[in-house]
Design a protein around this nucleic acid. Structure first.
Lengths: 228, 228
DNA sequence: AAAAAAAGTTGACACGAGCAACTTAAGAAC
DNA sequence: GTTCTTAAGTTGCTCGTGTCAACTTTTTTT
Protein backbone atom coordinates (compact mmCIF):
# COMPACT_ATOMS: atom_id res chain seq x y z
CA UNK A 1 0.00 0.00 0.00
CA UNK A 2 1.89 2.99 1.28
CA UNK A 3 5.30 2.74 -0.28
CA UNK A 4 6.62 5.24 2.26
CA UNK A 5 10.06 5.58 0.84
CA UNK A 6 11.84 8.36 2.63
CA UNK A 7 13.16 10.37 -0.25
CA UNK A 8 16.64 10.05 1.17
CA UNK A 9 16.60 6.24 1.24
CA UNK A 10 18.38 4.58 -1.63
CA UNK A 11 16.31 1.95 -3.39
CA UNK A 12 18.98 -0.70 -3.81
CA UNK A 13 17.57 -2.64 -6.77
CA UNK A 14 14.81 -2.67 -9.31
CA UNK A 15 11.89 -2.40 -6.94
CA UNK A 16 11.32 -0.30 -3.83
CA UNK A 17 12.80 -0.91 -0.43
CA UNK A 18 11.01 -4.18 0.10
CA UNK A 19 12.71 -5.08 3.33
CA UNK A 20 11.40 -1.96 5.00
CA UNK A 21 8.02 -2.29 3.31
CA UNK A 22 7.56 -5.81 4.61
CA UNK A 23 8.50 -4.89 8.14
CA UNK A 24 6.11 -1.96 8.05
CA UNK A 25 3.33 -4.12 6.69
CA UNK A 26 4.02 -6.59 9.46
CA UNK A 27 3.82 -3.84 12.06
CA UNK A 28 0.51 -2.73 10.58
CA UNK A 29 -0.98 -6.19 10.54
CA UNK A 30 0.35 -6.96 13.99
CA UNK A 31 -1.15 -3.78 15.37
CA UNK A 32 -4.47 -4.37 13.68
CA UNK A 33 -4.92 -8.06 14.35
CA UNK A 34 -3.01 -8.16 17.63
CA UNK A 35 -1.67 -11.51 16.61
CA UNK A 36 1.53 -12.86 15.14
CA UNK A 37 -0.42 -15.43 13.23
CA UNK A 38 -0.49 -13.50 10.01
CA UNK A 39 1.07 -14.97 6.88
CA UNK A 40 4.09 -13.80 5.01
CA UNK A 41 1.91 -14.00 1.96
CA UNK A 42 -0.44 -11.43 3.40
CA UNK A 43 2.49 -9.09 3.86
CA UNK A 44 3.66 -9.76 0.33
CA UNK A 45 0.18 -8.95 -0.93
CA UNK A 46 0.14 -5.69 0.98
CA UNK A 47 3.51 -4.76 -0.38
CA UNK A 48 2.36 -5.65 -3.87
CA UNK A 49 4.95 -8.32 -4.53
CA UNK A 50 4.77 -12.03 -5.15
CA UNK A 51 4.27 -14.45 -2.31
CA UNK A 52 7.89 -15.47 -2.24
CA UNK A 53 9.59 -12.12 -2.49
CA UNK A 54 9.87 -11.69 1.29
CA UNK A 55 12.07 -14.77 1.42
CA UNK A 56 14.75 -12.81 -0.37
CA UNK A 57 15.01 -10.64 2.73
CA UNK A 58 14.06 -12.93 5.55
CA UNK A 59 15.02 -16.56 5.84
CA UNK A 60 11.72 -17.39 7.50
CA UNK A 61 8.87 -15.94 9.44
CA UNK A 62 10.84 -16.04 12.63
CA UNK A 63 13.49 -13.78 11.20
CA UNK A 64 10.87 -11.31 10.02
CA UNK A 65 9.31 -11.26 13.46
CA UNK A 66 12.72 -10.64 14.94
CA UNK A 67 13.08 -7.58 12.75
CA UNK A 68 9.64 -6.38 13.82
CA UNK A 69 10.58 -6.93 17.42
CA UNK A 70 13.74 -4.89 16.93
CA UNK A 71 11.70 -1.99 15.59
CA UNK A 72 9.45 -2.32 18.61
CA UNK A 73 12.42 -2.02 20.94
CA UNK A 74 13.63 1.03 19.12
CA UNK A 75 10.21 2.65 19.27
CA UNK A 76 9.81 1.96 22.95
CA UNK A 77 13.29 3.15 23.84
CA UNK A 78 12.72 6.28 21.81
CA UNK A 79 9.45 7.01 23.58
CA UNK A 80 11.00 6.49 26.97
CA UNK A 81 13.89 8.76 26.08
CA UNK A 82 11.53 11.37 24.73
CA UNK A 83 9.28 11.24 27.78
CA UNK A 84 12.17 11.89 30.11
CA UNK A 85 14.01 14.40 27.99
CA UNK A 86 12.77 17.65 29.51
CA UNK A 87 12.62 16.42 33.09
CA UNK A 88 15.28 17.28 35.61
CA UNK A 89 14.09 15.44 38.68
CA UNK A 90 15.26 11.83 38.53
CA UNK A 91 12.12 10.79 40.35
CA UNK A 92 10.01 12.42 37.66
CA UNK A 93 12.17 10.89 34.98
CA UNK A 94 11.63 7.45 36.44
CA UNK A 95 7.90 8.06 36.59
CA UNK A 96 7.72 9.30 33.04
CA UNK A 97 9.77 6.35 31.91
CA UNK A 98 7.49 3.93 33.67
CA UNK A 99 4.41 5.52 32.17
CA UNK A 100 5.91 5.47 28.69
CA UNK A 101 6.88 1.84 29.13
CA UNK A 102 3.50 0.67 30.37
CA UNK A 103 1.68 2.81 27.85
CA UNK A 104 3.72 1.45 24.98
CA UNK A 105 2.96 -2.10 26.02
CA UNK A 106 -0.73 -1.56 26.60
CA UNK A 107 -1.21 0.25 23.33
CA UNK A 108 0.21 -2.63 21.35
CA UNK A 109 0.17 -5.79 23.43
CA UNK A 110 0.97 -8.09 20.55
CA UNK A 111 4.10 -6.16 19.73
CA UNK A 112 5.09 -6.02 23.37
CA UNK A 113 4.60 -9.75 23.76
CA UNK A 114 6.58 -10.35 20.60
CA UNK A 115 9.42 -8.27 22.00
CA UNK A 116 9.56 -9.78 25.45
CA UNK A 117 7.67 -13.02 25.11
CA UNK A 118 9.37 -16.27 24.38
CA UNK A 119 8.54 -16.47 20.68
CA UNK A 120 12.05 -15.47 19.72
CA UNK A 121 15.21 -16.92 21.13
CA UNK A 122 13.31 -19.59 22.91
CA UNK A 123 16.19 -21.85 23.77
CA UNK A 124 19.82 -20.84 23.77
CA UNK A 125 20.16 -20.13 20.09
CA UNK A 126 20.19 -16.54 21.12
CA UNK A 127 18.02 -13.57 20.54
CA UNK A 128 19.00 -11.26 17.70
CA UNK A 129 21.84 -8.96 18.74
CA UNK A 130 19.75 -5.89 18.13
CA UNK A 131 17.29 -6.95 20.77
CA UNK A 132 20.02 -7.31 23.29
CA UNK A 133 21.39 -3.88 22.63
CA UNK A 134 17.91 -2.39 22.82
CA UNK A 135 17.28 -4.12 26.11
CA UNK A 136 20.58 -2.82 27.46
CA UNK A 137 19.68 0.58 26.18
CA UNK A 138 16.55 0.53 28.30
CA UNK A 139 18.44 -0.72 31.30
CA UNK A 140 20.80 2.20 30.93
CA UNK A 141 17.92 4.65 31.19
CA UNK A 142 16.88 3.12 34.48
CA UNK A 143 20.44 3.10 35.79
CA UNK A 144 20.80 6.77 34.95
CA UNK A 145 17.68 7.73 36.84
CA UNK A 146 18.65 5.68 39.87
CA UNK A 147 22.21 6.92 39.99
CA UNK A 148 20.89 10.47 39.73
CA UNK A 149 18.89 9.90 42.87
CA UNK A 150 15.50 8.57 41.83
CA UNK A 151 15.45 6.42 44.96
CA UNK A 152 15.78 9.40 47.24
CA UNK A 153 19.56 9.56 47.27
CA UNK A 154 22.13 9.40 44.48
CA UNK A 155 23.87 6.08 44.12
CA UNK A 156 27.16 5.90 42.31
CA UNK A 157 27.12 3.63 39.28
CA UNK A 158 30.22 1.77 40.34
CA UNK A 159 31.36 -1.80 40.14
CA UNK A 160 30.78 -2.17 43.86
CA UNK A 161 27.13 -1.24 43.48
CA UNK A 162 26.44 -3.53 40.56
CA UNK A 163 24.41 -6.07 42.44
CA UNK A 164 22.38 -3.40 44.14
CA UNK A 165 21.65 -1.77 40.83
CA UNK A 166 20.69 -5.07 39.37
CA UNK A 167 18.40 -5.61 42.33
CA UNK A 168 16.71 -2.28 41.79
CA UNK A 169 16.40 -2.80 38.06
CA UNK A 170 14.98 -6.23 38.64
CA UNK A 171 12.32 -4.93 41.00
CA UNK A 172 11.47 -2.01 38.78
CA UNK A 173 11.44 -3.96 35.59
CA UNK A 174 9.52 -6.96 36.80
CA UNK A 175 6.95 -4.74 38.45
CA UNK A 176 6.38 -2.72 35.30
CA UNK A 177 6.56 -5.76 33.07
CA UNK A 178 3.93 -7.47 35.16
CA UNK A 179 1.66 -4.44 35.33
CA UNK A 180 1.96 -3.91 31.59
CA UNK A 181 0.99 -7.46 30.78
CA UNK A 182 -1.84 -7.64 33.28
CA UNK A 183 -3.27 -4.49 31.75
CA UNK A 184 -2.62 -5.62 28.21
CA UNK A 185 -4.31 -8.96 28.84
CA UNK A 186 -7.21 -7.29 30.64
CA UNK A 187 -6.55 -9.13 33.84
CA UNK A 188 -6.43 -5.71 35.40
CA UNK A 189 -8.27 -2.71 34.14
CA UNK A 190 -9.72 -0.58 32.86
CA UNK A 191 -6.67 0.46 30.93
CA UNK A 192 -7.54 4.14 30.89
CA UNK A 193 -6.59 4.09 34.56
CA UNK A 194 -3.15 2.99 33.40
CA UNK A 195 -1.37 6.19 34.34
CA UNK A 196 -2.74 6.33 37.86
CA UNK A 197 -2.06 2.68 38.47
CA UNK A 198 1.49 3.00 37.22
CA UNK A 199 2.15 5.99 39.42
CA UNK A 200 0.73 4.48 42.58
CA UNK A 201 2.53 1.19 42.10
CA UNK A 202 5.73 3.01 41.29
CA UNK A 203 5.40 5.08 44.45
CA UNK A 204 4.91 2.00 46.58
CA UNK A 205 7.88 0.36 44.93
CA UNK A 206 10.14 3.32 45.53
CA UNK A 207 9.08 3.43 49.16
CA UNK A 208 10.12 -0.18 49.46
CA UNK A 209 13.37 0.30 47.59
CA UNK A 210 14.21 3.39 49.63
CA UNK A 211 14.13 1.21 52.73
CA UNK A 212 16.21 -1.53 51.26
CA UNK A 213 17.38 -2.30 47.79
CA UNK A 214 17.60 -6.06 47.50
CA UNK A 215 21.01 -7.14 46.33
CA UNK A 216 20.63 -9.67 43.61
CA UNK A 217 22.23 -13.06 44.41
CA UNK A 218 25.70 -13.85 43.09
CA UNK A 219 25.63 -14.87 39.46
CA UNK A 220 22.27 -13.43 38.53
CA UNK A 221 21.93 -11.47 35.31
CA UNK A 222 19.29 -8.88 34.63
CA UNK A 223 18.74 -8.39 30.93
CA UNK A 224 19.46 -10.84 28.13
CA UNK A 225 22.28 -13.26 28.96
CA UNK A 226 25.62 -12.25 27.50
CA UNK A 227 27.15 -15.47 26.25
CA UNK A 228 25.40 -18.47 24.76
CA UNK B 1 0.16 -43.31 22.99
CA UNK B 2 -0.50 -43.67 26.69
CA UNK B 3 -4.22 -44.17 26.98
CA UNK B 4 -3.95 -43.35 30.68
CA UNK B 5 -7.51 -44.09 31.57
CA UNK B 6 -7.88 -43.96 35.31
CA UNK B 7 -9.67 -47.19 35.96
CA UNK B 8 -12.37 -45.27 37.78
CA UNK B 9 -13.17 -42.98 34.84
CA UNK B 10 -16.17 -43.93 32.81
CA UNK B 11 -15.55 -44.16 29.10
CA UNK B 12 -18.71 -42.55 27.80
CA UNK B 13 -18.81 -43.93 24.27
CA UNK B 14 -17.24 -46.46 21.97
CA UNK B 15 -13.69 -45.24 22.20
CA UNK B 16 -11.73 -44.04 25.20
CA UNK B 17 -12.13 -40.71 26.91
CA UNK B 18 -10.95 -38.75 23.89
CA UNK B 19 -11.60 -35.36 25.33
CA UNK B 20 -9.25 -36.00 28.18
CA UNK B 21 -6.75 -37.78 25.95
CA UNK B 22 -6.56 -34.84 23.58
CA UNK B 23 -6.07 -32.34 26.36
CA UNK B 24 -3.36 -34.50 27.87
CA UNK B 25 -1.64 -34.87 24.53
CA UNK B 26 -1.81 -31.12 24.12
CA UNK B 27 -0.26 -30.62 27.53
CA UNK B 28 2.51 -33.03 26.60
CA UNK B 29 3.24 -31.38 23.29
CA UNK B 30 3.01 -27.93 24.78
CA UNK B 31 5.44 -28.85 27.52
CA UNK B 32 7.85 -30.49 25.12
CA UNK B 33 7.80 -27.97 22.31
CA UNK B 34 7.11 -24.92 24.47
CA UNK B 35 4.93 -23.62 21.72
CA UNK B 36 1.24 -23.46 20.99
CA UNK B 37 1.92 -23.95 17.32
CA UNK B 38 1.25 -27.64 17.29
CA UNK B 39 -1.51 -29.03 15.13
CA UNK B 40 -4.73 -30.64 16.16
CA UNK B 41 -3.81 -33.40 13.76
CA UNK B 42 -0.68 -34.10 15.74
CA UNK B 43 -2.76 -34.51 18.85
CA UNK B 44 -5.16 -36.78 17.00
CA UNK B 45 -2.24 -38.88 15.85
CA UNK B 46 -0.93 -39.17 19.38
CA UNK B 47 -4.33 -40.19 20.62
CA UNK B 48 -4.61 -42.72 17.82
CA UNK B 49 -7.73 -41.30 16.26
CA UNK B 50 -8.51 -39.77 12.93
CA UNK B 51 -7.54 -36.21 12.17
CA UNK B 52 -11.05 -34.92 12.63
CA UNK B 53 -12.06 -36.68 15.79
CA UNK B 54 -10.97 -33.82 18.05
CA UNK B 55 -13.55 -31.60 16.41
CA UNK B 56 -16.24 -33.65 18.05
CA UNK B 57 -15.00 -32.30 21.36
CA UNK B 58 -13.61 -28.91 20.53
CA UNK B 59 -15.09 -26.47 18.09
CA UNK B 60 -11.65 -25.26 17.08
CA UNK B 61 -8.08 -25.02 18.20
CA UNK B 62 -8.84 -22.03 20.34
CA UNK B 63 -11.32 -23.98 22.37
CA UNK B 64 -8.85 -26.79 22.89
CA UNK B 65 -6.24 -24.34 24.07
CA UNK B 66 -8.79 -22.85 26.43
CA UNK B 67 -9.29 -26.29 27.96
CA UNK B 68 -5.53 -26.72 28.30
CA UNK B 69 -5.29 -23.33 29.92
CA UNK B 70 -8.00 -24.29 32.38
CA UNK B 71 -6.04 -27.37 33.39
CA UNK B 72 -3.02 -25.15 33.85
CA UNK B 73 -4.93 -22.90 36.21
CA UNK B 74 -6.11 -25.85 38.20
CA UNK B 75 -2.60 -27.26 38.44
CA UNK B 76 -1.15 -23.97 39.53
CA UNK B 77 -3.85 -23.28 42.08
CA UNK B 78 -3.44 -26.79 43.44
CA UNK B 79 0.31 -26.36 43.80
CA UNK B 80 -0.10 -23.05 45.54
CA UNK B 81 -2.66 -24.51 47.89
CA UNK B 82 -0.44 -27.50 48.57
CA UNK B 83 2.62 -25.35 49.21
CA UNK B 84 0.81 -23.30 51.81
CA UNK B 85 -1.13 -26.10 53.42
CA UNK B 86 1.12 -26.89 56.38
CA UNK B 87 2.20 -23.34 57.08
CA UNK B 88 0.71 -21.29 59.87
CA UNK B 89 2.49 -17.99 59.49
CA UNK B 90 0.72 -15.89 56.88
CA UNK B 91 4.02 -14.39 55.87
CA UNK B 92 5.40 -17.86 55.20
CA UNK B 93 2.25 -18.80 53.37
CA UNK B 94 2.59 -15.80 51.11
CA UNK B 95 6.22 -16.68 50.46
CA UNK B 96 5.43 -20.28 49.67
CA UNK B 97 2.64 -19.19 47.41
CA UNK B 98 4.90 -16.81 45.55
CA UNK B 99 7.54 -19.46 45.10
CA UNK B 100 5.01 -21.99 43.86
CA UNK B 101 3.59 -19.44 41.45
CA UNK B 102 6.92 -18.38 39.99
CA UNK B 103 8.16 -21.95 39.89
CA UNK B 104 5.07 -23.14 38.06
CA UNK B 105 5.48 -20.46 35.45
CA UNK B 106 9.19 -20.95 34.95
CA UNK B 107 8.87 -24.70 34.66
CA UNK B 108 6.38 -24.44 31.84
CA UNK B 109 6.54 -20.98 30.28
CA UNK B 110 4.42 -21.87 27.28
CA UNK B 111 1.60 -23.07 29.49
CA UNK B 112 1.92 -20.02 31.70
CA UNK B 113 1.82 -17.72 28.72
CA UNK B 114 -1.16 -19.55 27.36
CA UNK B 115 -2.95 -19.09 30.66
CA UNK B 116 -2.22 -15.43 31.15
CA UNK B 117 -1.16 -14.23 27.73
CA UNK B 118 -3.56 -12.69 25.33
CA UNK B 119 -4.06 -15.71 23.10
CA UNK B 120 -7.43 -16.42 24.62
CA UNK B 121 -10.15 -13.89 25.19
CA UNK B 122 -8.29 -11.29 23.25
CA UNK B 123 -11.12 -8.85 22.80
CA UNK B 124 -14.27 -8.77 24.82
CA UNK B 125 -15.73 -12.06 23.74
CA UNK B 126 -14.76 -13.25 27.16
CA UNK B 127 -12.37 -15.74 28.54
CA UNK B 128 -13.81 -19.16 29.35
CA UNK B 129 -15.67 -19.10 32.65
CA UNK B 130 -13.37 -21.69 34.14
CA UNK B 131 -10.41 -19.42 33.73
CA UNK B 132 -12.17 -16.67 35.57
CA UNK B 133 -13.04 -18.87 38.48
CA UNK B 134 -9.49 -20.19 38.62
CA UNK B 135 -8.11 -16.67 38.61
CA UNK B 136 -10.49 -15.72 41.41
CA UNK B 137 -9.46 -18.82 43.24
CA UNK B 138 -5.87 -17.65 43.18
CA UNK B 139 -6.87 -14.18 44.25
CA UNK B 140 -8.65 -15.68 47.21
CA UNK B 141 -5.46 -17.37 48.37
CA UNK B 142 -3.69 -14.03 48.39
CA UNK B 143 -6.57 -12.32 50.18
CA UNK B 144 -6.52 -14.97 52.87
CA UNK B 145 -2.82 -14.54 53.53
CA UNK B 146 -3.10 -10.79 53.67
CA UNK B 147 -6.14 -10.71 55.90
CA UNK B 148 -4.37 -13.16 58.21
CA UNK B 149 -1.58 -10.65 58.63
CA UNK B 150 0.99 -11.37 55.93
CA UNK B 151 1.66 -7.63 55.72
CA UNK B 152 2.63 -7.39 59.36
CA UNK B 153 -0.84 -6.77 60.71
CA UNK B 154 -4.15 -8.50 60.07
CA UNK B 155 -6.48 -6.61 57.78
CA UNK B 156 -10.17 -7.39 57.83
CA UNK B 157 -11.53 -8.58 54.51
CA UNK B 158 -14.39 -6.13 54.54
CA UNK B 159 -16.15 -4.09 51.92
CA UNK B 160 -14.46 -0.97 53.24
CA UNK B 161 -11.03 -2.46 52.61
CA UNK B 162 -11.77 -3.68 49.11
CA UNK B 163 -9.72 -1.10 47.32
CA UNK B 164 -6.79 -1.57 49.62
CA UNK B 165 -6.90 -5.31 49.09
CA UNK B 166 -7.08 -4.81 45.40
CA UNK B 167 -4.08 -2.53 45.64
CA UNK B 168 -2.10 -5.12 47.53
CA UNK B 169 -3.13 -7.89 45.19
CA UNK B 170 -2.24 -5.77 42.22
CA UNK B 171 1.23 -5.05 43.54
CA UNK B 172 1.81 -8.64 44.54
CA UNK B 173 0.44 -10.14 41.39
CA UNK B 174 2.08 -7.81 38.92
CA UNK B 175 5.41 -8.18 40.68
CA UNK B 176 5.26 -11.97 40.59
CA UNK B 177 3.81 -12.05 37.10
CA UNK B 178 6.63 -9.88 35.88
CA UNK B 179 9.32 -11.84 37.64
CA UNK B 180 7.91 -15.11 36.36
CA UNK B 181 7.90 -13.96 32.77
CA UNK B 182 11.32 -12.35 32.90
CA UNK B 183 12.71 -15.59 34.24
CA UNK B 184 10.73 -17.72 31.81
CA UNK B 185 11.91 -15.65 28.87
CA UNK B 186 15.48 -15.65 30.13
CA UNK B 187 15.59 -11.90 30.42
CA UNK B 188 16.62 -12.53 33.98
CA UNK B 189 18.47 -15.55 35.17
CA UNK B 190 19.74 -18.03 35.83
CA UNK B 191 16.48 -19.65 36.72
CA UNK B 192 17.92 -21.88 39.39
CA UNK B 193 18.25 -18.72 41.46
CA UNK B 194 14.49 -18.42 41.13
CA UNK B 195 13.71 -19.11 44.77
CA UNK B 196 16.18 -16.61 46.15
CA UNK B 197 15.09 -13.95 43.70
CA UNK B 198 11.45 -14.50 44.53
CA UNK B 199 12.09 -14.27 48.24
CA UNK B 200 14.18 -11.13 48.09
CA UNK B 201 11.76 -9.35 45.79
CA UNK B 202 8.86 -10.45 47.93
CA UNK B 203 10.56 -9.10 51.02
CA UNK B 204 11.18 -5.75 49.40
CA UNK B 205 7.59 -5.63 48.25
CA UNK B 206 6.21 -6.39 51.68
CA UNK B 207 8.42 -3.70 53.20
CA UNK B 208 6.91 -1.26 50.77
CA UNK B 209 3.36 -2.47 51.32
CA UNK B 210 3.80 -2.40 55.09
CA UNK B 211 4.50 1.32 54.81
CA UNK B 212 1.60 2.03 52.57
CA UNK B 213 -0.77 -0.15 50.64
CA UNK B 214 -1.74 1.77 47.53
CA UNK B 215 -5.49 2.05 47.21
CA UNK B 216 -6.48 1.20 43.71
CA UNK B 217 -8.32 4.03 41.89
CA UNK B 218 -12.11 4.01 41.76
CA UNK B 219 -13.40 1.63 39.14
CA UNK B 220 -10.32 -0.53 38.74
CA UNK B 221 -10.71 -4.28 38.65
CA UNK B 222 -8.03 -6.76 39.56
CA UNK B 223 -8.65 -10.11 37.99
CA UNK B 224 -10.68 -10.89 34.89
CA UNK B 225 -13.44 -8.35 34.26
CA UNK B 226 -16.85 -9.46 35.47
CA UNK B 227 -19.26 -8.32 32.80
CA UNK B 228 -18.69 -8.11 29.06
C1' DA C 1 -36.99 -52.45 17.81
C1' DA C 2 -36.75 -47.90 15.90
C1' DA C 3 -35.21 -43.32 16.19
C1' DA C 4 -32.11 -39.96 17.65
C1' DA C 5 -27.93 -38.43 19.09
C1' DA C 6 -23.06 -38.81 19.96
C1' DA C 7 -18.44 -40.22 18.46
C1' DG C 8 -15.43 -41.26 14.89
C1' DT C 9 -13.92 -41.73 9.83
C1' DT C 10 -13.01 -40.38 5.02
C1' DG C 11 -12.57 -37.07 1.68
C1' DA C 12 -12.38 -32.58 0.16
C1' DC C 13 -10.93 -27.44 -0.10
C1' DA C 14 -8.40 -23.38 0.78
C1' DC C 15 -4.43 -21.56 2.55
C1' DG C 16 0.24 -20.90 4.23
C1' DA C 17 5.37 -22.26 4.80
C1' DG C 18 9.07 -23.12 2.37
C1' DC C 19 11.88 -25.09 -1.67
C1' DA C 20 13.42 -25.06 -6.67
C1' DA C 21 13.86 -23.27 -11.07
C1' DC C 22 13.36 -19.42 -13.86
C1' DT C 23 13.55 -14.25 -15.10
C1' DT C 24 14.97 -9.57 -14.68
C1' DA C 25 17.87 -5.85 -13.49
C1' DA C 26 21.93 -3.86 -11.58
C1' DG C 27 26.90 -3.68 -10.91
C1' DA C 28 31.60 -5.53 -11.88
C1' DA C 29 35.15 -7.32 -15.05
C1' DC C 30 37.24 -7.26 -19.22
C1' DG D 1 30.27 -2.10 -24.66
C1' DT D 2 29.74 -6.79 -23.99
C1' DT D 3 29.83 -10.44 -20.76
C1' DC D 4 29.51 -12.36 -16.12
C1' DT D 5 27.80 -12.45 -11.68
C1' DT D 6 24.66 -11.75 -8.37
C1' DA D 7 20.73 -9.67 -5.93
C1' DA D 8 15.70 -9.21 -6.31
C1' DG D 9 11.50 -10.87 -7.80
C1' DT D 10 8.32 -14.44 -10.01
C1' DT D 11 6.00 -18.85 -10.99
C1' DG D 12 5.01 -23.27 -9.70
C1' DC D 13 5.34 -26.96 -6.79
C1' DT D 14 4.99 -30.13 -2.33
C1' DC D 15 3.43 -30.81 2.02
C1' DG D 16 1.04 -30.01 6.29
C1' DT D 17 -2.86 -27.82 8.58
C1' DG D 18 -7.67 -25.99 9.89
C1' DT D 19 -12.06 -26.83 9.00
C1' DC D 20 -16.41 -28.21 6.50
C1' DA D 21 -19.45 -31.91 4.73
C1' DA D 22 -21.04 -36.45 4.24
C1' DC D 23 -20.94 -40.93 5.87
C1' DT D 24 -20.47 -44.90 9.44
C1' DT D 25 -20.67 -46.84 13.86
C1' DT D 26 -22.02 -47.11 18.50
C1' DT D 27 -24.74 -45.62 22.44
C1' DT D 28 -28.79 -43.71 24.49
C1' DT D 29 -33.61 -42.74 24.32
C1' DT D 30 -38.19 -43.87 23.50
Amino acid sequence: MTKEISTIEQRPYHHGDLQRAIVEAALDVLSESQSTEFSLRELARRAGVSHNAPYKHFADKRELLAAVSAVGFELLAKRMAEATKELDSPRQRLGAMARAYVCGGVNNPALYRLMFGGYLGGQDDGRPAIERTAAYNMKALIVDAISDGALGRPIADTEANTRMFDGAILVFWSQMHGLTLLLADRLVGPSDKMGELTESILQGMLDGLANCIPAVPEGVWVGPPLAG
